[in-house]
Design a binder for these strands. Structure first.
Length: 266
DNA sequence: ATGCCCTAGCACCTAGGA
C-alpha cells in the first residue's frame, strides 16, 4: 500500500495539479494539508469519480486537512483532542488541523493527518499555541502507542528535525520551525517509540519537502524537510520504503511542498 | 535589515504562510 502526505497549499489553486498527480502517482491513500476550503467547498465528487473515498476537516480560507483513500475509511474523527477547556472551551479547536481515519485493507491501519501550527513569530502567542498543540499531539501519540496497532501520524509538522534537514540551517536558528523547544517537542513524540520513516530509509543532507516560493529557493535547492511520517512499531514492521517526490516542485503552478511517500507491506 | 512569492477572501488590499 502506497500512502503519501502532501501539503497542497489551497485546493482551488491546486485542483489540476492534484488530479494530475493522482493520475500519475496513483496513491492508495493521500493525506492532504492546507486545503484552505470549507468541507462544502471541497471538490469531493471529482475525487470520488477517480475512485477515492474522501473525508475532510476544513474551514474558510486557511488550514484544513483531508484524507483520500481507494480503500474504505472507517471511524473518522476530526480535530485533535484536548483543546483548552475550563471556560475557554474550543479555543484551540477553531483551526482545522487534524483528522483521523482507519484504512481497511489486508490490515487495518489508523491514519492520522496533521497540519501542525507554524508558530512564527517566536516567541509569542502563536509559538505558545504551537507548543500547546504539540503537547496535545504527544498525548494522542501516547494513546496510539498504547494501542499496539499499526498506526501512522503524517503531515506537515512545521518542524526541521536536524540541521541536515535544512540547506541553510543558520537561517533558521530563531525560527519556530527549528528552535530548540520545537525540536525537543518533536523528539519527545518520536522517543515514545515511533519510527521517523524517512530517516529510517535515508541518511545525509539534501533531502527536502518544502521550498519557499521566494528568491528562487527551488532553483537553488534551498529547502527544508518538514513533512514527516511517524510510524508505531506495528506499522514500522510493514515499512518497505519512504521517499520524497521532489520533482513535483518543478511542475506547473506547484505547491511549495511536495509529496512524501511510504510503501507499506499491507 | 527587508523583501522576494503565493493563496484566499464580503478581494483591487490584507492576513497568513515558513
Amino acid at each position: 500500500m502506497k500512502i503519501a502526505t502532501f501539503n497542497i497549499n489551497g485546493i482551488k489553486a491546486r485542483m489540476n495539479a492534484l488530479t494530475d498527480w493522482l493520475d500519475d502517482a496513483n496513491p492508495d491513500v493521500a493525506i492532504l494539508q492546507e486545503i484552505k476550503s470549507q468541507d462544502e467547498g471541497f471538490p469531493r465528487e471529482a475525487l470520488e469519480d477517480k475512485g477515492y473515498n474522501v473525508e475532510t476537516h476544513g474551514q474558510k480560507g486557511f488550514n484544513g486537512v483531508a484524507i483520500l483513500s481507494k480503500l474504505p475509511l472507517e471511524d473518522v474523527t476530526r480535530g485533535l483532542p484536548g483543546a483548552a477547556g475550563a471556560g475557554r472551551e474550543g479555543v484551540d479547536d477553531e483551526e482545522a488541523r487534524y483528522i483521523e481515519a482507519t484504512v481497511v485493507g489486508d490490515v487495518a491501519i489508523r491514519i492520522c493527518g496533521l497540519y501542525l501550527p507554524n508558530g512564527n513569530p517566536a516567541p509569542g502567542p502563536k509559538y505558545d499555541y504551537k507548543l500547546r498543540w504539540m503537547d496535545r499531539l504527544y498525548t494522542r501519540a501516547q494513546e496510539l502507542m498504547a494501542a499496539e496497532m499499526p498506526a501512522l501520524m503524517a503531515g506537515d509538522y512545521n518542524i526541521i528535525p536536524q540541521p541536515e534537514d535544512a540547506a541553510r540551517p543558520a537561517d533558521w536558528t530563531d525560527d519556530a520551525l527549528f528552535r530548540p523547544e520545537s525540536r525537543a517537542a518533536f523528539r519527545k513524540i518520536v522517543n515514545l517509540g515511533f519510527t521517523e520513516a524517512f530517516r529510517s530509509c535515508e541518511t545525509g543532507d539534501g533531502h527536502y519537502s518544502f521550498w519557499d516560493y521566494q528568491a528562487g529557493a527551488w532553483e537553488k535547492n534551498n529547502g527544508i524537510r518538514i513533512d514527516h511520517f511517524l510510524l508505531t512499531p506495528q506499522c514500522a514492521d510493514l515499512l518497505n520504503n519512504c521517499w520524497i517526490e521532489s520533482a513535483v516542485r518543478g511542475r506547473e503552478r506547484p505547491s511549495d511542498h511536495v509529496p512524501v511517500w511510504v510503501d507499506l507491506a499491507a
